[in-house]
Simulated assay, not measured.
Amino acid sequence: MATRRQPPTVRLRRLAGELRSLRQASGLTREDAAAQTNINSATLYRIETAKARPQRRTLLTLLDKYGVGDPERRAALVELSKQATQLGWLQAYESELPEEYTTYISFESEARSVRNYESLFVPGLLQTQGYTRAVVTASLPHASDDEVQKRVETRTQRQAFITRDDPLKLSAIVDEAVLHRKVGGAEVMAGQLRHLLDLTERPHITLQVLPYKVGAHPGMHGAFAVMDFPDVVDPELVYIENMAGALYLEKEADIRRYAEMFDQLRSAALNVADSRKFLDRLIDSEGEGRRK
């Protein structure tokens, strides 16, 4: 059985960036550094791309080579390395979930804000348990009851990010089709719509509806999320998911492109107040339909 890869975390990504910058400041290519430290070049590549955490001996060897002599700087990087693979509550679910999902959650848990466009689902952070259960059951038809429950519990744990003392700021845009699709049936969906309306009263959560009348728009290729982080040394990150897997984009040009795309969608969508009115009308119409 293949060894499960350690999901990258914000700290691991930060350590990778620090070591990459130190090497470049030393005027060394990755091949130079590998040859002069006897560290395998493939290992060094994995360290610099946040795919692996360096062992303490490897880290100290690199710091020596890059001329990092300041004791406080060395101690800070060693401590960062120690913390780089800590997954907190997610540790209990790691073996049950796909690597790309645990990776996303590890980043989301430390993000300052998320800009999320969804074309098919209610954003995960805003889902009710009934909605989540229906989505997981439909998308994973061969999953056991225990596996489904683990997914539901994980999503519920994630939602603590938007209710903690220093909550994650969420800006969400959903296609109108998301709100009409009766995931889990009429009763589950009615509860989901009411939940969305309640959540929009929180100052750190904005929800906008992208109506059908907009026609063609920049988000037609699919859902995406743009995350940014409290520490300025941690660059923004774009997350894209499809049936083939997950993709993380870190290049400045890609981040700028998706940020601009989100702004275009935000301009095309109903504003926050009108989106609330849209939800109100939809809830009322669904209620009327059930009473007939």
Rank of each mutant, 00 (worst) to 15 (best):
E260L: 13
H217T: 12
E176S: 10
S171A: 15
A268M: 13
L197Q: 13
Q159L: 15
T49R: 15
D280V: 04
A75D: 11
R73G: 00
F278N: 01
Q36V: 12
D70W: 04
N242G: 09
G245R: 00
A268Y: 00
L15D: 00
H180C: 05
T163I: 06
A269P: 07
A172P: 05
E48T: 03
R14G: 02
L125F: 09
T37N: 14
N40F: 03
R290C: 01
S81P: 03
D145R: 04
T29I: 02
V272W: 02
R20C: 12
A269L: 12
L193P: 05
R256P: 00
L90T: 07
R53N: 02
I173R: 00
T206M: 03
Q91E: 12
G245M: 00
D146S: 14
A111W: 01
Q86W: 11
R13V: 05
R290I: 08
L207D: 00
S95W: 02
R73Q: 15
T49P: 14
E72T: 11
E31D: 04
A92W: 08
P54S: 05
Q149C: 03
D145S: 15
F121W: 10
R115L: 13
R53C: 07
Q24C: 11
R115M: 07
Y212D: 14
S275I: 09
R276D: 00
D284M: 09
T206W: 10
D263Y: 02
N271L: 05
P8Y: 04
D254Q: 09
P8L: 08
Q24D: 14
K65E: 15
L207K: 00
A92Q: 12
E100P: 04
T102Q: 01
S81G: 07
Y258T: 05
S119V: 12
R30A: 12
A160Y: 05
G191Y: 03
V78Q: 00
D231I: 06
D274L: 15
S139I: 01
N271G: 11
T85K: 06
T61G: 06
L237C: 02
P54F: 02
Q157A: 15
G191I: 07
V209S: 08
A25G: 02
N271W: 06
R46Y: 09
E241I: 05
L270G: 00
N242W: 10
M220L: 14
E236N: 06
K82G: 02
A246C: 08
